[in-house]
Design a protein around this nucleic acid. Sequence first.
DNA 1: GATGAATGAGCGTTCATTCAT
DNA 2: CATGAATGAACGCTCATTCAT
Lengths: 191, 191, 191, 191
Amino acid sequence: MSKVEKRDEIFRAALELIAEHGFHGAPMAMIAERAGVGAGTIYRYFENKDVLITELYSEIEGRIYPVIMEGYPEIKAFRERFLHLGTALLRYFIENPLDFRYLEQFHNSPYGVEFRRDRLLGEIEERFVFRELFEVGIAQQVMKDVPLAILFALAFGPLLSVARDHILGFVTLDDDLIARTIEACWDAVRR
Amino acid sequence: MSKVEKRDEIFRAALELIAEHGFHGAPMAMIAERAGVGAGTIYRYFENKDVLITELYSEIEGRIYPVIMEGYPEIKAFRERFLHLGTALLRYFIENPLDFRYLEQFHNSPYGVEFRRDRLLGEIEERFVFRELFEVGIAQQVMKDVPLAILFALAFGPLLSVARDHILGFVTLDDDLIARTIEACWDAVRR
Amino acid sequence: MSKVEKRDEIFRAALELIAEHGFHGAPMAMIAERAGVGAGTIYRYFENKDVLITELYSEIEGRIYPVIMEGYPEIKAFRERFLHLGTALLRYFIENPLDFRYLEQFHNSPYGVEFRRDRLLGEIEERFVFRELFEVGIAQQVMKDVPLAILFALAFGPLLSVARDHILGFVTLDDDLIARTIEACWDAVRR
Amino acid sequence: MSKVEKRDEIFRAALELIAEHGFHGAPMAMIAERAGVGAGTIYRYFENKDVLITELYSEIEGRIYPVIMEGYPEIKAFRERFLHLGTALLRYFIENPLDFRYLEQFHNSPYGVEFRRDRLLGEIEERFVFRELFEVGIAQQVMKDVPLAILFALAFGPLLSVARDHILGFVTLDDDLIARTIEACWDAVRR
DNA sequence: GATGAATGAGCGTTCATTCAT
DNA sequence: CATGAATGAACGCTCATTCAT
C-alpha cells in the first residue's frame, strides 16, 4: 500500500466510523483496525485525532466543489444557476451519505464551531461560489435583500434537512422530489 | 431541596454544560457539582446518563409547546397561523439559546437518531400541531403538495440555521429580520 | 481504610517502586496495585503523576527533619553540632534506604532540578538548620570561608556517596565507620 | 560518512539529548534525527538502546582518563598527586558539562547500578589510578585508614556536588575556588 | 434517601524495535 | 548497508457507574 493509499484508508475508516457512530464511537484503535493499519501508524499521517478530524473535513469539502461546479459556468440564467447548485449539492449528499453525515457531525461539535469561526471571513471555494451568486442576485434585485447569512439559511437549511431525512430513511427522494424541493428553496430566496 | 427541585437542578446543570460544551464536556461528576448534589444522587433520578440526556430532551420539547401555542387558537387565517408558529419558535430559540444548543447537540448524536426513529410514528405535541397545519394546508391547496417531511424541512431548516447563526454571533436578528425570514419560509412552502 | 491511610499506602507503594526501579519502573497501574487500590483512585489523591512524585519528595523531606533535630538543641560545641547532624543524617539514610534512593532518583531527574531551582532561595527546614550552622561557623572562623554551596558539597557529598555505597552493598557501615566518615567531613569543612 | 564517524555522531546525539533531557527525553528516533542517520541505522551499531547507553558511558569514561593523566607521572609528592587528579577531574567536568550530566544520569538509573555491580571488582582505568594512589596513601600512613569506598566518597563526593552546582548555576567556580575545594577534599582524606 | 470515594475499562498517544525496500 | 514507515504493547489519565457509609 502506498503512502497516499494508506492515508486514504485511514480517512475512509474514520469517515465510516464517525459518520455512523459519531466521534465517541470512533476510537483511534478502531479506526486503525478498520483501515488495516497499526494504531500507531495513524500518528505518522496525522499529528493527533483533532488534526485527523479537521483534515478529513477539509478533504470532504474539497471533494464537493468540483462536483457541483460541473456544467455550472455554461449556465447563464440566474434562477437556473441557483437550481443547478442546489440540485448538485443535494444530489451529492444523498449519493454520499457518509460525507453528509460526517459534515453534520463535524459542524455540531466543538471542532465545527471553532473551525467556522476561523474561516468565517476567509473563503472556502463552495462558499465563495454561493456568495458570489447571492451577491449578484441581491444586486440585480432577483433575490431578497436580507443578510447573506439569512439567504444561506433559506437555501441550505431545507437542503440539509431533507438530505438528513432521506439518509435516515424518513423520506425517499427521487429526481422529481429533488427538483421540487430546490424550486421551493428558490421560492424562499427570490423576490 | 425537594425531589422535584433536585431533579430540576440536575436538568439545569446538564443543560448548561451540554449546551455549552457538548456531551464530551459534561461528565456526570461535573453535572452533579453544578447541580449541588452528590454524583450518586443523579442515579436516583435517572437510570443512567443516556436516560438523563433523553429525558432532558423531552423536557425541553415540552417547554416549547405552550410558548408557541400562546394566542395560536385565536388565529384563523392560514398564512398568519404559519407565521405565528414560525415566529414563536424562532423567538423561543434565540431567547433560550441553551435550549436551542441542547436540541442541536441532541439531534446530532447517536441519541438523536435513535430517538427520532422511535418517535417517528408516535407524535409529540409540537409536531402534531405543525403536522395538522400542514395537512390542512395541503388539503386546501395553500401549501405545496410534497411529503410532510419536505414541508417540515422547508419550514424549519432555515429557522434552525438562522437561530444557530444568531446564537453564534454570525448574524444579529431583530424583529424585522425575524419577520422577513419567516415570510421567506412561507414563500417556500406555499403554493 | 481511612483517607489518610490510603494516601499513605499510595505513598508507600510509589516510594518502594520508584526507589527500587526508578520512575520508569513505576507505572501508575503498578503503584495502584501495590497500594491495593484501583488505578483511578490515585487521581483522587494526586492530580497527576508529577504531583504524586513531588509531594512524596516533600513528605520524605519532612520526615527527616525531626529525626536529625532530636537532641540537637542541647549541644553547644560547634564541632559536636556538626558531627551530630552529619551522623544523624547518614544514619537516617542507611536505616531508611528507600527514602534515600527516592531522594536520589528525584534529585537526578527533571523534577529535581526544577524543584531545586524553585526552592533555592526559599528555605526548607533541613537546609535552614545547616545553613545557620555553616554561617555561624564561617563567622566564628571555625569553618573554611568558601561559598555555602561548597561547604554543603564538602559536608554532604561524601555522605551521599557512602550512603549509596552502603545501600548498594559496596561497603558496610558500622558505628565506628560512620563516626570516622563524619569526622573526615568535618576535617574537610573546618579551618 | 565513515562507519566510525557515524558511530560518533550517534554517540554525540545521544549524549546531548540524554544529558539535557534525561533518558525520557531522548527517544531513539530523536537521537537518529540529530545524528543525521535513519532510526534503524542505530541498530546496526548498537544492539538496542540499553547497549547504546552503556557503551556511551564507557566511551565517556575513556575520554577522561588521558585528560587527568596529563602531567601526572612527573609528579612525585603524594599530596600534589591527589590535588592534580582532583583538580583535573573537576575541571574536566565543568569544561564538559554534557559528559558530566550524562555520567550523573547514568549513575542514577537502573543501568548505573547494574553496571557498577558488574564492574566492581574489575577495574576501569580511572578507578585503577585512584585506587593505586589511595592504597599507597594508606600504606604510607598519609591517608586515613578507612575502606577504599569511604576514601572515594570523601574525595569524589564533594567534587560531584560542586560540579553539579556549578553546571546548574548555583555557584560559579573559578581557579581559586577549585583549588580550595580540592584542598578541602585533601583535608578530608589525609591523616 | 443521599453521598462521594472507589473503581477499572477504555481512551489518545508514545516509542523501542523490526523489516521491506 | 541504510533507511524510515509500520507496529503494538504500554503508558498516563478520564469518567460512568457502584456501593459502603
